[in-house]
Amino acid sequence: MSNPIEPRERTVSVRLMELVVAGMFMAAALLVMTDNWRIGARWADDGPQAGYFPFYVGLIMLIASSVTFVANLMVKEGRPSNFVARSELTRVLQVLVPAAVFVIAIGYLGIYVSAALFIAAFMAWLGRYPAHRIAPVAILVPLALFFMFEVWFLVPLPKGPLESWLGY
């Protein structure tokens, strides 16, 4: 990461990312503190109240992340640093976006159909496999899961229209 950064690979600096993450920690800490103050964060006669520990957990988190935040503010941007190269980010999104679509699809199509589509799409798009190599994986993996969970272990996983048409 220390090599000079090509302009077109530039995304955000590490420093900015550090600030954002520390800022998110601080926000989370404040949220934790306010909600636990509401339910009682004092030490009562018979020990701590329900919000006591979480409140102080929030407080410590706030202090620690503030230090990180301020330390990064003070750092002078000497040599420019890049959190992630553009090409790297693209590759990460190539997994993340389909995965997110898959997770959303589970709610509508059920996990088995979504899994088949996801595996097929992934293999076709990123692996550039021919259909005859995609089909076995994309069909057999969800099918194996189906038999294992729905038939053997009797653990119902999210199902969609196809399964209910098949009577499950």
Partner: peptide, 24 residues
Amino acid sequence: PFSIIAPVIIVICAVGAYTVHNAL
């Protein structure tokens, strides 16, 4: 190869996350 195993792993992770509490 990763392009085969990665989606399978993500599917198995999703199944795993669901079965902990049966929650979507």
